[in-house]
């Protein structure tokens, strides 16, 4: 319990430090190329275009996606919202596990609160995500999806994604200090995670057209905490689902987050004096 409070306190008292570090790192990234910030929009757009051709036009022949409640949504905007979440969560997970190791030249040279490092990675990605979400919202409005109050729930799900990835980063970044194989393992699993999450294919449609064996996997797919976040974004924007509609999933999601956070804090606290000697 002491470790949880210690890590929580270290993160809260250093909140400004977390934001400034992510700000200057983002700035440094943009400086590396001539077009800078534009790449954080271009790059996803090119990928979206590719997936739209492959999945929307070729595999699904332009048929709309169906929500779990039976609402039909045109595939492209449906997929864009899901994949925008993925473009946020995915780098948080892969870079989060390297959060401590990547800063080895800082933690060996100055006294530094190491437990804030996973959060700095996530907040850095959050800047990009917010820019990306603004573009997405603009595109949705152009296509005739009128904003309403339920869209504000996106901020709640954004908060969920932030908590989830920080907690996960706490665990993986410490484990990655023992052996860099953790990072390799995680990058290898990311593609799998992408296809197991409802990003490119609507779970309702796929399950409706599959045999009993695949259908029996439905609860397993819903165990993925990303399911809650991604469907949450879509629920708010397309299906008009209020947050209160899924109490069991909400409870499950927060249990996972808190569980990861507790494990991460214990690891952080236990090894905080040992990281330097592991390098």
């Amino acid at each position: 319990m002491k470790s949880v409070w210690f890590v929580l306190k270290e993160n809260l008292t250093n909140f400004n430090r977390i934001l400034s570090i992510s700000k200057y790192e983002t700035l440094a990234d943009y400086r590396e190329s001539r077009l800078g910030v534009l790449w954080s929009v271009f790059n996803p757009l090119i990928q979206i275009f590719t997936y739209w051709i492959a999945f929307g036009l070729i595999m699904r022949k332009g048929s709309p996606a169906t929500s779990p409640t039976g609402v039909g949504i045109s595939y492209l905007p449906w997929m864009v919202v899901g994949i925008t979440v993925w473009f946020f969560v995915s780098p948080c997970i892969t870079k989060g596990c390297n959060a401590i190791y990547a800063k080895r030249n800082i933690i060996t040279k100055m006294k530094f609160p190491i437990s804030i490092l996973p959060a700095t990675v996530v907040f850095k990605e959050l800047f990009n995500h917010i820019v990306m979400m603004l573009v997405v919202v603009a595109l949705l409005v152009v296509r005739g999806h009128m904003p309403n109050m339920l869209w504000l729930q996106v901020f709640y799900y954004m908060f969920c994604a932030v908590c989830l990835t920080i907690s996960l980063g706490m665990v993986t970044s410490v484990l990655n200090m023992f052996t860099r194989d953790v990072k390799k393992l995680i990058s290898a699993c990311m593609r799998m995670l992408m296809y197991l999450s409802p990003i490119l294919w609507p779970i309702t449609d796929v399950l409706a057209n599959s045999n009993a064996l695949v259908r029996s996997l439905e609860p397993v797919i819903k165990l993925n905490p990303l399911y809650y976040v991604i469907e949450g974004y879509r629920g708010s924007i397309f299906y008009h689902d209020p947050v209160t509609m899924h109490p069991a999933q909400t409870l499950y999601f927060w249990c996972v987050v808190i569980g990861l956070y507790v494990v991460g804090s214990i690891l952080m606290y236990k090894f905080k004096h040992k990281f330097i000697d592991m390098l």
Binding site: Y24, E25, L27, A28, D29, R31, E32, N105, I106, T108, K109, M110, K111
Partner: peptide
Amino acid sequence: LIAIKAGMNDQL
């Protein structure tokens, strides 16, 4: 600790 090179970013 006076650490001269720590935390410098070449792009900034």
